[in-house]
Design a protein around this nucleic acid. Structure first.
Lengths: 357, 357
DNA sequence: CTGAAAGCGCTTACAG
DNA sequence: CTGAAAGCGCTTACAG
């Protein structure tokens, strides 16, 4: 069934040695033009392509990078898959995809390692630290994408690429305080994920520096459904939050839908909402979500840079943190309304052009 | 750097032959319990894992399946990635991801083939027929996912899994006609994609059978931005469509945002909107999009079934078409309003529970 | 059950 | 520049 020709067959047809065939397909190897032409012609008639598996066996480089992901409902991750695989492809690598299932991760990881991958990228806030550690232990370069290594795992081999989540959290705090919010709620993601921890820490610090604090808190576990439930929880009772910071856009959108369509509240008139990530949906007309931008292209580029450094051992191990910025859209009110904020400050109307409806 | 132990080293430590080590890790091979125990112990101390590349070289089975995708903004495709890779993983396969870039597809495909993949799944409505043909020509089993082979490529090797897009189109036509719509617009996807062709054909036939026809048509190329532009085009002029069928949810959502936030129209009171796919966003509170459900789990299962049939050659080549059904949400009006449909039929109010807002 | 040996398809010193 | 040869780490008849 596997009818593809071998180098041996090409050699026979071209009347050269098998070495010559190999050299023809090895950039930089020395072959005369005459030989090369004969080989190329023979290869063409036979439909020959070098067997990458055999090559990897002897070069000890598979040019395969494993990409480990969890939940793809959050559009942030498809973005990462797309951009990262395209860049890796351009760099001559191939992506072995691995969707982890919480349960059967260990066995599947073992299988990944059997494929002699040159490196592993772990891009999931939800992944067990255990799995990450196993990867590191295997001796294959590992880059944690969008998550920091646990403190007790900080070794030279554990490198990471992430946004400055702490700074992002501060930006949100400052923004909400500036807009006059006082009853500010936080919708947390996964409690033990570094993204959630850092965003919350920055947020809490930012509020504290302005003399405020988190007024109410609930946990959405980065899940759409649980974020909806958590939003109901935050808004039960008579005194409601006047602003909500969700630890990612995915949850912020879930929250907005609950606020508007289940609780009958207006965003941003009754409640301001801020997210984190800047996924494509955040820009959609129905949400116009103000959010913290994670610079995916920069994160992806940094990942590939680190990967190559690790694989070539050309530089000491290091991690990279990418800066964030706030993207203001229409989900945060321009000025406090006296009724909801009990603040009678009135500011100039600052209606975003995109907000008219 | 690559410090992982080899079977030879394990054999030495266990004082057995290298064959015995191999047999221990080959399910079904005959090894005595005593030998197996010694080998397993030695393997454990050395951290040995069989090298899958070397194994593939000799067994002529890589257990790698290539997954070729295009655009991931449409949430349908991440769903497919997730479900398909999880099922393939459970079946002992690994997914080599390939995001095609319209341009550099050919070279990258050649690389995929070098990795001796056992099969290729092409899951993109946007992929050039050329690429699909190349895959088929390579002799590796190819399954077209969510697209049909071109007529002139229909060979035993070109097998596909798709929804009954034609039937889906008919369902939408019937539904819109039943709800009293007469000025019905169609927002087309990629003109030459089989999904678009089939959905439109079914839609046109369904309207025709009811004595109607498509009132206006524009092309969104399955792109969010182009769908937005196409929507503006459809709704310019004084006589506007009273219903819109978009060839997928991704475009339907783009259209809804334009209708509501740029044109100030209400959905469904002023315009009904129907999509196709039933992506997670279709169920979001802001859209409540009525749509045709593509049964992704069934499609994925069918894909793996066909893949295995092809790889084992256990059954004649065949394609599978999965049935569709209409998921009614809130984006289609319950009864015709006299003003917009010029139909004075009045039907019983049929308010969906999800529509209150 | 077990081991020696051939061989999967390649790359890469080594001589010439 | 070129070819013969060794070897990457495995599996699998083949004898025993």
């Amino acid at each position: 069934m596997r009818t593809s020709a071998t180098a041996q067959e090409v050699a026979r047809l071209a009347r050269v040695s098998q070495s010559a065939v190999s050299r023809t397909f090895t950039p930089g190897a020395s072959v005369s033009d005459a030989t090369r032409e004969r080989v190329v012609a023979a290869a063409k008639t036979l439909g020959y392509r070098p067997n990458a598996l055999a090559r990897s066996l002897i070069t000890r480089r598979s040019h395969i990078v494993a990409l480990v992901m969890g939940y793809l409902q959050n559009q942030f991750y498809p973005l990462v898959i797309q951009q990262l695989s395209q860049l890796l492809q351009r760099e001559g690598y191939h992506v072995l995809m691995f969707i982890s299932d919480e349960n059967e991760t260990d066995g599947a990881l073992a299988e990944i390692l059997q494929y002699q991958v040159d490196a592993i990228v772990i891009a999931s806030a939800m992944l067990s630290q255990d799995l990450a550690q196993q990867c590191v232990d295997s001796g294959v370069p590992v880059v944690l994408f969008n998550r920091l290594p646990d403190v007790d795992t900080t070794r030279p081999h554990t490198i990471s690429v992430s946004s400055d989540n702490h700074e992002g959290g501060r930006l949100v705090a400052q923004h909400l305080v500036e807009r006059g919010h006082r009853r500010i709620a936080f919708l947390a993601g996964l409690e033990n994920s570094s993204t959630n921890v850092e965003r919350e820490r920055g947020f809490v610090e930012g509020l504290r520096d302005a003399g405020h604090s988190v007024w109410k808190r609930a946990v959405g576990h980065y899940s759409f459904e649980r974020a909806q439930a958590a939003t109901l929880e935050l808004f039960e009772g008579t005194e409601r939050p006047d602003a909500l910071f969700a630890a990612n856009d995915h949850m912020a959108i879930a929250a907005m839908d609950v606020l508007r369509h289940q609780l009958g509240l207006r965003v941003p008139q009754d409640v301001s909402v801020v997210g984190f990530d800047d996924v494509p949906q955040a820009a959609w007309g129905s949400y116009q979500l103000t959010t913290v931008v994670q610079d995916v292209p920069a994160m992806v580029e940094a990942t590939v840079t680190l990967l190559k450094e690790r694989m070539d051992n050309t530089a000491p191990a290091r991690s990279i943190v990418i800066g964030c910025r706030l993207m203001e859209r229409g989900s945060v009110r321009a000025a406090p309304s006296a009724s909801s904020a009990r603040a009678s400050v009135r500011r100039k109307a600052n209606v975003s052009p995109a907000t008219r409806s």
